[in-house]
């Protein structure tokens, strides 16, 4: 058995935390390369409409909850996802509260996150913690956040968000997904035309 990660590209809340963590693992850990498969659906599992990601491990286990996946990865790759134990509460908070698109509700929780970052450079500790991936990924997936970050509505959140964004591996994971999904859609279109239509390749 080997690793495989599936991500639902049309999920209401795309599993960026897991996608980014795996992208960094693939970059940092020489002996591991976890293949990432994108599914152009709302869920990776036809029997569960809310399943945004699925990780199959070499041990033959399957995880489909983002926090479970992050915890498994932190156990295997503690240098990439640090401080897992002390990250649980914040990670749960991020995954449950920061994906929300109702600004009135979100604003209260962003204020909490902003105060967490008053005296902290990272969300938990002095390097990328499990909670940093959970939080950054959730905010990156939240369409409301772009202008909020840019306008420094929450000063500490913007500083921290931009620090992680300056690490190319964070946004490149997102770009990789967008490109892969575009390719998927093109080849699906070709298949629908009986394979007659040539795809344009630059």
């Amino acid at each position: 058995m080997s690793f495989s990660l599936s991500i639902a590209a049309k999920a209401t809340f795309v599993a960026y935390p897991v996608l980014i963590a795996v992208n960094v693992i693939n970059d940092v850990v020489d002996e591991v390369s976890i293949p990432i498969e994108f599914v152009d659906e709302k869920s990776v599992d036809s029997s569960d409409a809310d399943s945004s990601a699925k990780l199959v491990t070499p041990e033959g286990k399957t995880y489909s909850n983002q926090l479970d996946i992050l915890n498994y990865l932190a156990g295997k790759f503690p240098t990439v996802l640090a401080n897992a134990e002390s990250s649980q509460e914040l990670a749960k908070f991020a995954l449950e509260h920061l994906y929300i698109k109702n600004f009135k509700v979100l604003a209260v929780d962003l204020e909490k996150l902003d105060s967490v970052l008053n005296y902290r450079t990272f969300v938990n500790g002095y390097t990328y913690s499990l909670a940093d991936y959970a939080t950054w990924g959730a905010l990156r997936a939240n369409a409301l956040m772009g202008s909020i970050i840019k306008n420094e509505v929450y000063i500490n959140i913007s500083r921290w968000y931009n620090l992680l964004a300056s690490d190319k591996r964070f946004d490149s994971a997102v770009d990789f997904m967008i490109k892969s999904v575009n390719d998927l859609r093109k080849s699906a279109k070709t298949a629908n035309n009986g394979g007659k239509k040539e795809t344009h390749k630059a």
Binding site: S115, V116, N118, Y119, E152, V153, Y154, I155
Partner: peptide
């Protein structure tokens, strides 16, 4: 010694 939970008011730009 840093008190991470110090109750300081949120800063607004």
């Amino acid at each position: 010694k840093v008190d991470y939970e110090a109750q300081v008011a949120r800063e607004i730009k």
